[in-house]
Design a binder for these strands. Structure first.
Lengths: 198, 198
DNA sequence: ACCTGAACACCGTTCAAGT
DNA sequence: ACCTGAACACCGTTCAAGT
């Protein structure tokens, strides 16, 4: 990994070039030479910092997902102790906003992500999201403690699943607003049902 | 496409070989020669029936997803006119059962599917699922007609998103049962909230 | 009508040589 | 310490020749 300053620049530009190539030609046609060219270096240089093409894509995807999760965590922390309805609204809105900001990037990276299902990257990211949500849910008395763990799994998968589906449809802004509204209705109704069930 | 009988066998065995190879070595190491060998034919033969490797995978994935969707459609048709709670229970249970039956296959094919995001395969399948759900929801007076379309999108994406997340975790049977229970609570609460909102 | 497999093109990866 | 790019291996695809 980089030591001198120019090599830090190199890594940075390879990283950016990867995203650019992904956006321009898609994951199918992303070749190591193309990325290197775009970054203004030779293939060999790329291989000095990444053991292979997969590792390169992995790094880019990981950074992207981590940034996204950090927004979710922020919203969760900021909603600790709030009403259930407010929690839901805050987290859903934060996630949708964050996704919208990186919409194109999200879509192309989605093509790449299944390769890493086994590496457990998605699992790790999901875990982070669920834990943040769980911590938030535990801060209210409304939800039975024994339901919190599963409720956060449901919360997380519903949120990410729905937004992914809607964005994949090439949805217009109006549809995303509808999705936001419906997600809030659904998750609030769900959490309320859990709290009154016992 | 096949005309004589032996060629129908050939296509069939190529199809099966694809799934076998996928299960044995994963999508990353699936090569055309490997599939052909496993099917007991030469590469050239494979290219007589499929224009390229992608088309082969596409066909296999399409068949898999279509079979899955048909189960959802069946459950939806069978629940027309039922109570909202029964509708939800029937469809959720049917989907989870169907998924369980083809669990391994689902997991490896998931690695392949993002390639076809642009082809609109996933979109078409999703549309089928949503339409079946929408038809079912329209059969009850409980849900405001103007909400039906979006409600079916939410229903579909929640169901598929959650089950995918849980299966990806390598979930034990107990967890799937919990997912089933929670999905039913969530979707019933959601649809009920929609019906009492106006 | 269907099948074969050697030949070709393309791409991931390496490594000897350079600054 | 970092970079280059020709060379190699592997894999998707084609096509002339076969039954």
């Amino acid at each position: 990994m980089p030591v001198q300053e120019r090599s830090i620049d190199t890594v940075q530009s390879i990283h950016e070039a990867t995203i650019q190539v992904l956006l321009q030609v898609g994951s199918e046609k992303l070749t190591t030479v193309r990325v290197a060219e775009r970054a203004g270096v030779s293939v060999g240089t790329m291989y000095q910092y990444y053991p292979n093409k997969q590792a390169l894509l992995y790094t880019v995807l990981e950074e992207h997902l981590t940034a996204l999760m950090e927004e979710v965590e922020r919203a969760c922390r900021g909603s600790a102790g709030a009403e259930v309805a407010a929690m839901v609204e805050n987290v859903v809105s934060a996630f949708i906003q964050a996704k919208l900001r990186v919409r194109q990037k999200s879509l192309v990276l989605y093509e790449v992500s299944p390769q890493f299902r086994q590496d457990g990257l998605m699992k790790r990211i999901a875990k982070r999201g669920r834990q943040a949500i769980a911590a938030m849910l535990r801060s209210t008395k409304a939800i039975p403690p024994e339901e919190v763990e599963f409720a956060s799994l449901m919360f997380y998968s519903t949120l990410t699943g729905t937004v992914a589906t809607v964005l994949a449809k090439g949805a217009p802004a109006s549809m995303l607003e509808a999705a936001r509204r419906h997600l809030i209705v659904m998750l609030t109704a769900y959490l309320t049902a859990l709290s009154t069930e016992s």
